[in-house]
Design a protein around this nucleic acid. Structure first.
Lengths: 151, 151
DNA sequence: GGCTTGCTTGGAGTGCACTCCAACGCCATA
DNA sequence: TATGGCGTTGGAGTGCACTCCAAGCAAGCC
């Protein structure tokens, strides 16, 4: 019952409104992955996965009877999201803050939204900066292109 | 003679095809700035400016008769460009490499262009990633917005 | 002359985000 | 039963890009 994939479990939701587009290949119908499988799926290292857990960036990960980590699909969804946040340049401390809010439940919706909206603004600014830089690069590249050819 | 602003000096060109859009306010007709003026113009710290020089990221900066740095407009142009490169996420080591190529003269046009083109590709990828992230953020934000309101 | 301000230097320190290490446990296959 | 492979831990180490420090010099002002 707890392994049915489609529904977001509300028992311990890693996050609500989770991943529509699946980014990493996952064997269908499975919901327990070793750390090395997660490494293969996410591209993160095992070190980093354990470190994320230590600093509170992961919701508690299940363990096998021998104490080894067994990740679930919702953990992978969460890791996908964290990876996205990370490449916005968001500091890990802020991601941990968001993770805390998720753990605290529905009362924190407003704050989570505020956090994401501020991140959204950062991303838009970043894109604008990059466009700007792109213009500079294009100008220089075309200079070198013509000079390089005419020489 | 050496203080006329418009022409790119070919005596010691910080970079060819230099800055059309002036980013920072500069007193017109001046071409010698103290480090603290450059701090005000660029937003970099004095520490960082000296460090850039030490690692070879700056073309040689003039000195006053007492040994203090006197930056010129071409130095400011170069710093503008470096700042742009930096916010693409380019490692400082690569920027130093580019600076070396500039010092080596016209023979390195092809390599400079290759370097900038590879940076350009990185920037485009980065923008694509950020767009992707933006979509995820928007989805989550609108979820929290409706849930937050309906609650 | 004394004080302040602004600059100089080499080298050491900081903060972030990992990244690695040593020592150990469990278990499947030869 | 032993060997290899995969996993575990806390704590230490790494690389990057700054960031700061202490000690000192030069100029301007009271």
């Amino acid at each position: 019952m707890q392994t049915t994939p489609a529904a977001t479990e509300h028992a311990a939701p890693a996050d609500i409104c989770s991943a529509p587009p699946r980014r990493h290949p996952r064997p269908d119908g499975q919901d327990r992955y070793t750390i090395s499988e997660v490494v293969a799926f996410t591209g993160l290292t095992a070190h980093t996965l354990r470190w994320y857990e230590r600093i509170g960036l992961m919701p508690h990960v299940d363990r096998s009877h021998t104490g080894q980590r067994r990740y679930r699909n919702r953990d992978l969804d969460w890791l996908d999201f964290v990876t996205k946040l990370r490449l916005t340049g968001m500091p890990v401390a802020d991601m941990v803050r968001y993770a805390e809010l998720v753990r605290e439940g529905e009362d924190t919706y407003a704050e989570r939204r505020a956090l994401l909206e501020s991140t959204r603004r950062d991303v838009l600014n970043r894109i604008a900066e990059l466009r700007d830089t792109l213009a500079v690069l294009d100008r220089k590249i075309s200079f070198y292109a013509t000079e390089g050819t005419t020489r």
